[in-house]
Design a protein around this nucleic acid. Structure first.
Lengths: 214, 214
DNA sequence: TTTTAGTAGGGTGTTTATACGGTATTAAAT
DNA sequence: ATTTAATACCGTATAAACACCCTACTAAAA
């Protein structure tokens, strides 16, 4: 395999051991060449200026400074030819969808074998996408279950976050500078939209949907 | 460096890419020899029978089948000479403490550089421990804040889990086959022990402390 | 053997939460 | 120009949650 035929890749992940490990593994494949590794999206931006351009970027999702979603979206605008392959630990529905929406061409789990990752990279270069059961399944579900997309107003969201506390509704009303009757409406509106009946239900919903972060 | 002088290590982690990556990286160090890699504690047990015994095991925490806590505790009983170095992504107070309690000699983050990991391994073999800021800090805090160790009874825990729902206390009482007055006692007892005042507080506590899993 | 902790139960309150009935204003959408 | 959605507010209920008083049994600990 000649130098020109090798697929040029970059790795963006904040876990140095993982990043270096993947670099070591991928470098062993004759078909690949690692042009740089970065610990977050911002560092990636800087390295793109100095380094040879990669064809594929292996992108972690959770990173400090600039995460995978941002970094992928940025690449789509500034380097549309560079393909992004999301590399994550969890097959979390929302994460998969969000990375695809941000512009990733595929989603590979960290549980994968080195050769599987190579195949995913090759698929992205040749076909433009890498679709496995993880991605296809989530995508179908996200589309089929989307019609009733709930929209909570800004005020309702604010109220919902405050519910995740020991404050009474009266105290929440004070905090939000509205009358207790008004927070009653927020509550009832949320109960109806979310099909809930109790404050505990609100708390659980907010946490499950990451509206309130622990 | 002769064969006998090399430190024999094993890696236990369910993320194949990470595991293989670390193996590749550590194999490059002349001072080390990777004798096996396993994807969880159970597989480690099997490989210990077939393979050369490692001196140090790099142990992930979250794994399917048998996690890092169990595997470390098992090693302390069946192979007390093998040192365990916890290898985790998060510097979560409880995780650190729990791994040390299970018998780990040190705690290294996946954000570390390859050479740092090598140094940690060497420290474990030479000194028996690897103490860095992560571990020492958490340990001190865990000791200083431990005297009032809360003990919730089995019944209280059961009640606390049921609170993480939309059930009323009356319904919880039915579920637990006790009178509503009795669940009042569980609630008040928890309020006192946990210094809480509301059911929302109970829900948040249960989730934060992983008594209720989402 | 007395004490302590856990379990289970009761009586009597007040406070909070929930349910359902309204009105009014504003800004954006049709 | 009218409708819709988001905002904010009020009254009157009942149901649930919370507070504080108490007894009693059992098993383990001091």
């Amino acid at each position: 395999m000649t130098e020109a035929e090798r697929i040029k890749i970059a790795i963006v992940d904040d876990h140095t051991l993982f990043r270096s490990g993947v670099t070591a593994l991928m470098s062993e494949f004759d078909e690949l060449k690692v042009v740089f590794e970065a610990s977050n999206g911002q560092q990636m931006q800087q390295l793109l200026l100095k380094s040879e351009l990669p064809q594929v970027v292996l992108m972690d999702i959770n990173m400090p400074v600039m995460d995978g979603y941002e970094a992928t979206a940025w690449l789509k605008i500034h380097h549309p030819k560079i393909m992004v392959l999301a590399l994550s630990m969890y097959e979390d529905d929302k994460a998969v969808i969000k990375m695809i929406k941000s512009g990733a061409c595929g989603y590979v789990l960290k549980q994968s074998k080195p050769r599987e990752l190579l195949e995913a990279i090759q698929s992205v270069v040749q076909k433009g996408v890498f679709i496995n059961e993880i991605v296809s399944g989530k995508l179908i579900r996200s589309i089929s279950s989307n019609p009733d997309e709930l929209k909570l107003s800004a005020r309702e969201l604010e109220f919902l976050k405050l519910c995740c506390s020991e404050m009474s509704y009266k105290e929440i009303a004070d905090q939000m500078f509205v009358s207790p009757r008004t927070v009653d409406n927020y509550r009832e509106s949320l109960f109806q939209k979310l099909n809930l009946k109790t404050r505990s239900g609100l708390v659980l919903y907010a946490i499950k949907n990451e509206i309130f972060k622990l």
